[in-house]
Amino acid sequence: MKATTANCGEDLVVRVLGDVDHHTSLGLREEIDRQMTAAAPRRLVLDLSGTEFMDSSGLGLILGRYRKAREAGCELVLLRPTPAILRILRLAGVDGMLTIRQEKGEES
């Protein structure tokens, strides 16, 4: 599991690197939740541009973070998902639930 985080003003940006599957998602969940508690951001940005693989376990991770963030009054944004990840997000209808940005500032 690899994730790097940066605080940009009121945003917490988490770059999710490598593969997100059942094996790696638990560690990622704990890491993101720990950062969320520490930073209490207005917005959680999951940068998926460096995510090489994601399956439905990653979907569970994203939906779980979406619920937690919403409870904390925080918005979840997915940044630059790869085409393969976007296909899974669309199949699950997640693209209509939360903000997906292809580039900084641009929304789809």
Binding site: D55, S57, G60
Partner: peptide
């Protein structure tokens, strides 16, 4: 879609629908 017997594991219930699609 979204049916899972493992909610606390944060499973999405989308595995079988994805395999099918």
């Amino acid at each position: 879609p979204f049916f899972t017997t493992d909610r606390e594991g944060e499973r999405s219930g989308m595995g079988l629908p994805i395999m099918d699609a």
